Computed example of a mutant assay.
Amino acid sequence: MTTPDVVTVGETMLLGVVSPPGRLRHARSLAVGIGGAESNVAIALARLGVPTRWIGLLGQDEPGQTVLDRIRAEGVDTSAVQRVPDRPTGLYLREQVGNTVHVTYYRRGSAASTLSSDSIDPRQLDGATWLHLTGITPALSPECATATQWLARTAREAGVRVSYDVNFRSKLWDVATAASFTTTILPWVDLLLVGTEEGRALWPWDGDEQVARRLADQGPAEVVLKRGAEGAACLEDGSFVQSPGFVVPELDPIGAGDAFAAGYLFAHLSGGAVPQRLRTANALGALCVRGHGDYESLPSRGELDDFLSDRTHLGR
């Protein structure tokens, strides 16, 4: 496989979505998909032409094969994926009632929850520019938390830059534990991504800029605040830069934060300055929410360029 520019590590699950939207109890069918923050980022980057590797643990089961096949089909390097016997691949169900999305996880004891430093050969990071991690993985188990710290430290020592998306999940761990873990990993993080809502929940300081500056003091050279439809902001070298979002019709908000992270990394790899990174990240987030699914609406490089240039095509 081609040496990856970006390596991502984390859990990807089989996804069941109520179709058409409504409550699960009334559903006659489920649309089958996959979903995982880190693989969403890997797929987004692969569609933009970035060599990307996803590392994860899957059960030796049909859901695991489905996950593996779909990620591999997107052009992501899955050569480091391991299949774990006697452990299931995680599952989550999603229902949408009005504009509210409800998610139910079945991931306790999953194959991915057994991730440890012994699961990953450090040579899988060779040649990479970035390692992308999220706060979902360490919330799966104490072993996963230790492995996430080990990965960040190992990458930094090897000269690989570390991107960490807080991605706080209240169904996996509490505010205090998530905030404490983030504090412990920050010294090894180059780029920290945090949503403004989760930032206010984990660190109830005054104002977005203060949150960014206090987090930057703990290690990251860049702190990016994701503001959803309102756009984003970045603190780098003491300068706080803000960028507005794009106005688009929103069909499904799931995966937008992962798309944003991918867009920011893509612009970074392309040599873009902070304003370009934020604009590209906002664009990918906007393109993601225009369709259904965790990653299905993510664009190709040409589609992203058209969106950023406000070019339209008849399509016929």
Results as ranks from 00 to 15, higher is better:
261 A>S: 07
129 T>M: 13
172 L>A: 04
153 R>W: 14
76 V>G: 06
313 H>N: 14
68 L>F: 10
72 R>N: 12
28 R>D: 11
131 L>C: 09
34 I>F: 13
40 N>Q: 07
56 G>A: 09
98 G>H: 06
106 Y>V: 03
258 D>T: 02
172 L>V: 00
80 A>H: 09
44 A>P: 10
258 D>G: 06
201 A>V: 03
46 A>Q: 12
26 H>E: 14
119 S>D: 00
312 T>E: 13
294 D>E: 15
63 P>S: 04
4 P>N: 11
230 E>Y: 08
177 T>F: 02
155 A>N: 04
210 Q>F: 04
56 G>W: 10
36 G>A: 11
252 D>K: 02
20 P>T: 00
236 E>Y: 14
86 D>S: 07
204 P>L: 00
99 N>H: 08
48 L>P: 14
72 R>E: 15
53 R>Y: 12
204 P>H: 00
230 E>D: 15
113 S>L: 07
12 T>C: 15
121 D>A: 06
264 Y>P: 00
229 A>L: 02
166 V>M: 09
155 A>R: 07
27 A>K: 01
14 L>H: 12
76 V>F: 02
249 P>R: 00
209 E>Q: 13
162 V>D: 08
65 Q>E: 15
30 L>K: 15
104 T>I: 10
40 N>R: 11
15 L>G: 05
117 S>I: 09
56 G>N: 11
249 P>Q: 03
23 R>M: 11
178 A>W: 07
58 L>Q: 09
172 L>K: 02
173 W>M: 03
219 G>D: 10
132 H>C: 06
